[in-house]
């Protein structure tokens, strides 16, 4: 059974269709990347899976369960999202502790103190950060908190929306290493959206290339070694990202 499966999914915002007939499968424990320009609909696909883009038709299956048209508890237990901008995705008036405890309170999970401690250690944050506010943290630390928040309910699937594009290269390297380690340790499944092909090359096994709301090609990440893409659009994207 695959972790995420989409079959012929169309997604619309206010009646305007932006994603057309998207189909792909992500196996359990796999790391899959959706790449494309802004406006290609890649983030919209993530949002639909998370129940944040309710106007979709087609078939979404998440760990064997049918997809939802709105966020709900069961979905939250199994699937969490990490957003691009760590400055925008943490509540400015809540401490790290409050942010991390909230999902536990909502789901009536006990042993909160130990769980918070453990997850902080998991993402490599010192315990002295536990009672700080987001503005007292650097960008990289904030993104660690955002990842910790997503891990609180011990989900199997993480949806990553440009998790490092707001960060400096040196901090990006730390967060990428962290994501790689967490996946190995917890057996997580990643669905990542990014426009940075070298990041895909580091973190993912397969990649889906999106253009104008459609998936034009699904290729193994090894295609990034030799440029073995069949679709002209993916080839152009590959060429544009080649640094030398």
């Amino acid at each position: 059974m695959s972790a995420i499966s989409l079959r012929g999914v169309d997604i619309a915002y206010a009646g305007q269709r932006v994603v057309h007939g998207v189909s792909f499968e992500v196996g359990k424990g796999e790391s899959f990347a959706l790449v494309g320009e802004s406006g290609s609909g890649k983030s919209t696909v993530l949002r639909a899976i998370a129940g944040l883009a309710p106007e979709w038709i087609g078939e979404i299956t998440l760990l064997g369960q049918p997809g939802s048209h709105r966020p709900n508890r069961t979905l939250a237990r199994h699937c969490q999202m990490v957003f691009q901008d760590p400055y925008g995705s943490l509540h400015p008036r809540k401490t790290v502790d409050a942010v991390l405890t909230e999902p536990l309170a909502i789901h009536g999970i006990g042993n909160r103190d130990a769980r918070v401690e453990r997850v902080l250690a998991d993402v490599g944050l010192d315990r002295r950060f536990r009672f700080r506010y987001p503005h007292q943290l650097s960008g990289g630390q904030r993104q660690r908190v955002a990842i910790a928040r997503a891990l609180m309910l011990e989900p199997e699937v993480l949806l990553l929306d440009e998790p490092t594009s707001a960060l400096d290269v040196s901090v990006q390297a730390e967060i990428l290493n962290l994501l790689k380690r967490l996946r190995a340790e917890h057996g997580l499944t990643y669905l990542m959206v990014t426009h940075n092909l070298p990041v895909v090359s580091f973190l993912c096994e397969r990649i889906g290339v999106m253009n104008k709301g459609r998936i034009v090609e699904i290729a193994p990440a090894t295609a990034l070694h030799d440029g073995a893409f069949s679709d002209p659009y993916s080839q152009a994207l590959y060429a544009a990202s080649g640094r030398e």
Binding site: V169, S170, Q172, A173, E174, L176, N177, K180, N196, L197, P198, V199, S201, F202, L224, H225, D226, S241, G242, R243
Partner: peptide, 14 residues
């Protein structure tokens, strides 16, 4: 620290 296009390192140096 910059990921390369064919990235073969298991971990990025920080």
């Amino acid at each position: 620290a910059v990921p390369q296009m064919p990235e073969t390192r298991a971990e990025l140096p920080v």
